[in-house]
Amino acid sequence: MLKAKIFVQLKASVLDPQGKAVSNSLHSLGYTAVSETRISKYIEISFESDDRATVMQQTEEICKNLLANPNTETYHFELEQQN
């Protein structure tokens, strides 16, 4: 069994108001060295397969077709062997 661990992030050029709000809170907590916070999505997908090439290709398709919006987001993922 393989598990895809997928990160979907806003592009650097896109403003992240949630991240900005978190930064402001961190500053008010005294973490003045914090320069920026970006909020991302983390998604896990488990596959009933050990075929890395196929799972890699399907995960790529899933990210492109549904999980990430190419206008505003980028993605990357890694595959992990599950017992």
Partner: peptide, 17 residues
Amino acid sequence: LTECGLLPGTLLMNSSL
């Protein structure tokens, strides 16, 4: 309409959250 590609662009979260 933006998600299915009939219109360009994206609607993001309001700047005020």
